[in-house]
Simulated scan of single mutants.
Amino acid sequence: MSQLLGRQDCAESLRKDLVDLQAAVVDVFSRTGPVRVPSWKFPDKLSCNLDLVSLLEQYDFVDGEDEYNQHSHIVLLELVIDR
């Protein structure tokens, strides 16, 4: 499993999953209002206040940066859990 960590196709798949999850969250919020609970990944912030666009830009795949890509992969997985 560790051979997949940091691969571009995995990162792109996680990014798509996050966008889909965020769309579902926004859909629910449009009916119920925001759920004001702390973020799992960023406990100092409310989950409904996370700027997912900014986070996706920050943790994007970078050619030739294996260590950074592995870190980004883990962060993207944690954001899936957070959503």
Rank of each mutant, 00 (worst) to 15 (best):
V25H: 01
E12P: 02
L18F: 02
I74H: 14
E67A: 09
I81E: 10
R15N: 05
L4A: 14
N49P: 05
F61M: 02
E12R: 12
Y59M: 04
Q58G: 01
M1F: 09
D17H: 04
V35N: 08
F61V: 02
S30R: 12
P43R: 10
C48L: 03
A23M: 09
E57N: 11
C10N: 08
Q8K: 15
K41P: 00
L50N: 03
V75Q: 13
L5D: 14
G64H: 03
A11L: 07
F61P: 04
W40P: 04
E67L: 08
T32C: 11
I81M: 06
Q8L: 10
Y68C: 09
L18M: 05
R83Y: 02
R36W: 07
D82S: 06
V28L: 15
G64S: 03
L5N: 15
T32Y: 06
G6R: 07
Q8E: 15
F42T: 12
D44H: 15
S13H: 12
S13W: 06
L52V: 05
Q3S: 13
L56P: 03
D9G: 07
Y59E: 02
H71F: 13
D20Q: 08
Q22R: 10
L50F: 02
V26M: 09
F61D: 01
L14W: 03
V80L: 05
R31I: 06
Y59Q: 03
W40M: 09
V25L: 09
P43F: 03
L52A: 08
L18V: 02
L21W: 01
Y59H: 08
E78W: 03
D82V: 05
L77G: 15
L4C: 12
K41T: 14
R15M: 06
S2F: 13
S47N: 13
L5R: 15
V19G: 02
E57W: 02
V25T: 06
P34W: 00
F29T: 12
D66R: 08
A11K: 00
K41I: 10
D17V: 01
S39G: 04
E12T: 11
P34R: 01
V53N: 15
P34Y: 00
E65L: 04
F42P: 03
D51E: 14
C48P: 10
K41E: 11
L14P: 06
